[in-house]
């Protein structure tokens, strides 16, 4: 992989999956200049189950987008699994996202024309190092982990909201990423389904040591996480 030489010179703390150093990010919304993130630093270590909380407009989603390489920082550095994302071009960032980061979106973002199996398989289709039999095994394992083995030939529109979010989790899991980022994963779900999704995420965190970093407003979810990071006006508060 081309990005290998972009690892930190000191090799970092090997257990840190995300290391954020003094990042800032600002936007221009019409005539208004918004400083969404101000000189923020943070470390997420392997196996952590971290919730990012804060009021609306506090910079949660912006921070999540920056960690997920969906957007670029103005200043500072973000290291994902020891790799400085600031120095990566767009294609290298795509590769990094594919190999190191899984995404769970608030509105699931499943592809409607693909069935569940194909949706989960999607991130692996661009991987040349994974052959078809291995790909099949990984997809089936991911679907088994989220309890959707019997639904693999269904289309997203044939599933409930909770099932769709589980498909999204399977899609995030299938590449065995170092980190799974989730933006309000339970926001579009009823409380019972939301609980089931939280259970699933916690189980995956415990049994498979998957690192979760997610932003939420959900009180129930906050009460069950091991680490809460509070953000206010673009800065870590606690």
């Amino acid at each position: 992989m081309v990005v290998k030489n972009l690892y930190r010179a000191d090799n970092g703390a090997m257990s840190s999956v995300v290391e954020i150093k003094n990042i800032s990010k600002s936007y221009k919304l019409g005539e208004t200049h918004v400083e969404a993130i101000k000189n923020l630093s943070l470390v997420v270590t392997k196996g952590e189950f971290t919730a990012l909380i804060g009021a609306s407009g506090s910079g949660k989603t912006t921070l999540l987008n920056l960690i997920g390489c969906l957007d670029g920082v103005d200043r500072g550095d973000i290291f994902i699994d020891g790799m400085n994302v600031k120095q990566l071009n767009e294609n290298q960032k795509s590769q990094l996202r594919n190999e190191k980061i899984g995404f769970i979106f608030q509105s699931f973002n499943l592809i409607p024309v693909l069935n569940i199996y194909e949706n989960v398989e999607l991130p692996l289709t661009v991987r040349k190092d994974i052959q078809a039999p291995e790909r099949k095994a990984k997809v089936e394992a991911a679907l088994k982990d989220v309890g959707l083995s019997d639904f693999m030939h269904h289309r997203p529109d044939q599933l409930s909201g909770g099932q769709r979010q589980r498909v999204a989790i399977a899609r995030a899991l299938v590449t065995s990423p170092a980190l799974i980022l989730a933006d309000e994963p339970t926001a579009n779900l009823d409380s019972k389904t939301a609980n089931l999704i939280i259970d699933l995420m916690l189980e995956l965190n415990k049994t498979k040591n998957v690192t979760f970093f997610f932003c939420t407003h959900d009180e129930k979810l906050m009460s069950r996480v091991q680490k809460i990071v509070k953000i206010k006006d673009g800065q870590i508060e606690a």
Binding site: G68, L70, E90, N91, S94, Q95, R97, N98, E99, F103, F105, N109, I111, L122, P123, V126, R127, R171, T175
Partner: peptide, 16 residues
């Protein structure tokens, strides 16, 4: 548009 974004987010490169 959002689907294209999703594809890029899960690791599709521009050429993909």
């Amino acid at each position: 548009t959002r689907e294209i974004g999703t594809l890029r987010a899960v690791g599709f490169k521009t050429k993909d």
